[in-house]
């Protein structure tokens, strides 16, 4: 049996991003008072795409866009043997009274999103926060957190691994499902 299979091919990957952009426009109209915040590190690959495509579709000069590093807010910081390595945090605006689209690549346990919400608190009180994820592993949640916008829903066991690959880092946009976490680096 194969160790891995493609669950979202390049063509469907592009369609998924296109669809999600239109869903976001349906919800937030012209993104007045709305900002996009990608979660570092890999959530920002996805938010970069959404942000760039939304600018084209809406033909607006600017949508406030931040990249949030949540390393220092994680609840598992001290459970690792090694310190977690932080990424750059790029937030040059406050979210006070804004609509926030929080973006990550894979929603799994929900702990990353919890940490992101804690980190977001330091930038003011948003009017509303909605969550957009490319992959929703819906049966693996540890916390009551759900996505508002989903690219693809994956039902997989805990020991499976979902890998999102990007053209600029891995050569092609696609999503792979590994039956076992251990196979992902092979």
């Amino acid at each position: 049996m194969d160790h891995e299979r493609i669950i979202l091919s390049r063509e469907r990957f592009a369609l998924t991003i296109e669809r999600m952009c239109h869903q976001l426009i349906e919800q937030f109209d012209r993104f007045d008072d709305t900002c996009i915040i990608g979660i570092q590190p890999r959530g920002t690959f996805f938010s970069d795409r959404l942000h760039a495509r939304l600018l084209q579709l809406l033909d607006v000069p600017r949508i406030p866009y931040g990249k949030l590093d949540i390393t220092f807010y994680r609840d598992d910081f001290r459970l690792h043997n090694k310190p977690l390595v932080p990424s750059a945090n790029q937030m040059d605006f406050l979210v006070e009274n804004k609509n926030v689209v929080l973006v990550d690549d894979v929603l799994y346990s929900g702990r990353t999103v919890q940490a992101a919400l804690a980190a977001l608190n330091d930038y003011g009180r948003p009017r509303v926060v909605e969550l957009a994820v490319l992959v929703d592993r819906r049966f693996n949640r540890h916390l009551p957190i759900q996505a508002d916008f989903t690219g693809i829903t994956v039902d997989a066991l805990d020991h499976a691994y979902v890998k999102v690959e990007w053209a600029h880092t891995d050569g092609e946009d696609r999503i792979l499902l590994f039956a076992d976490k251990k196979d992902r680096d092979k």
Partner: peptide, 19 residues
């Protein structure tokens, strides 16, 4: 490298993280 990320933290309006 770690200090560079903390320098960004201490220049935020809220200069505190819960680590």
């Amino acid at each position: 490298d770690t200090a560079a990320t903390f320098k960004e933290v201490i220049n935020r309006p809220i200069k505190k993280v819960p680590s």
